[in-house]
Design a protein around this nucleic acid. Structure first.
Lengths: 197, 197
DNA sequence: TGCTTTATATGATGATCATCATATTATCAC
DNA sequence: GTGATAATATGATGATCATCATATAAAGCA
């Protein structure tokens, strides 16, 4: 059936967006092609008209996820001075809301341990995404006057990613909340954010 | 065939140890019962004489992994003063050697994002393991004179786990090394370890 | 109106998965 | 040495998986 010229592209977008959500929620292994296509309102056979393989889909979906990361960073930091921007981003990142919405949240915290088992093409995309976010954080830290902002940003990102991952891993809600709160307090205290000491 | 009384227990141990390695290396979804039993020198059918289900195996294997964590912590910190003990543990945790041996390394960094999708029984075990390691780190920090040692230990563990996970996720070796080095330097600098400033 | 094109659907393939019923056989007790 | 016992093996079940060959049908074009 010959649809208008954009139809194919729109379908592709829809599959990719569903994949970006499903992969973050259930992991690359937890997402089947058939279930994904059904979620997108299609049947499973048409998948290979859009993607060369499931690995290809995963790699491209990771790209989509990091587009969201950029959008979120800009949204939290736009029109704020460096201290307020960092404070807002840390607050967002280490919030219960972020913890409880894996399918829309940061792919770094959602997929870090899965990445080690994925194809190089996906891992390279992931590495570029990490480098980009580190760079934006480093820019804010540099404007704050932090020495060696690149190194500080890398360590800060590790801390935020680790805390969010651990908060999602444990079963006890109180323990989970505490992990987030301790990391947020440590970061704010270190850089004098949010009126902290 | 009726073996001596310990045979069943030994076989069980062997399956569990293989599982603890394979799950850390390939993830819970990446380990099949048949392949695991073959690795242990057995056939797949006998599995259910030892474990109620694969979920049961995973939960018990997580327990085995955390026994290793305790052993490693003791090994690194025994007979050292608090600063040297912490420095040694941070050095071990954020080493390339640790990064490159997922199957024997810390389960927290190997499985954190997988845990969010596992059964509650496994997540509870994981949470207890995290709490235990946090407690040991807090003890060392308290002896160092760090205020609010529990909170500091929790944030420090998040940072180490995040850095190790990210170092394994990226494809570029230089980027991977830098992630480890930045986190190690940040922690050592913060607590005055290893002759750092 | 009818032909061509092509996006999607149908259905099949072979692999792998967890699980379990049943068969085998090695060792211990006698 | 013989028989009972229990640990492991064999083989099957049904589900799900990625992948692909082929069929269908809708929309633009003539």
């Amino acid at each position: 059936m010959r649809y208008d010229a954009e139809h194919r592209g729109k379908t592709r977008e829809k599959i990719l967006r569903e994949a970006a959500s499903a992969i973050r929620a259930r992991g690359p292994d937890g997402v089947g092609v058939a279930a994904l296509m059904k979620q997108a309102g299609l049947t499973h056979g048409g998948f290979y008209a859009h993607f060369a393989s499931k690995d290809d889909l995963v790699a491209q979906a990771i790209g989509v996820m990091f587009d969201d990361v950029r959008g979120r960073f800009d949204h939290e930091t736009a029109e704020r001075d460096p201290a307020a921007a960092l404070d807002a981003y840390v607050g967002f990142y280490l919030s219960r809301r972020h913890r409880d919405s894996r399918e829309r949240g940061c792919p770094i915290a959602a997929l870090s341990t899965d990445m080690a088992r994925l194809e190089p093409v996906s891992r390279e995309r992931f590495g570029r995404g990490i480098a980009a976010l580190t760079g934006w954080l480093a820019g804010a830290l540099a404007r704050l006057g932090v020495a060696d902002a690149d190194a500080a940003a890398s360590a800060m990102l590790s801390e935020m990613v680790g805390a969010l991952s651990l908060s999602r891993a444990v079963a006890d809600p109180a323990q989970s909340d505490a992990i987030l709160a301790h990391a947020a307090a440590a970061i704010r205290n270190r850089f004098g954010l949010g009126g902290g000491a």
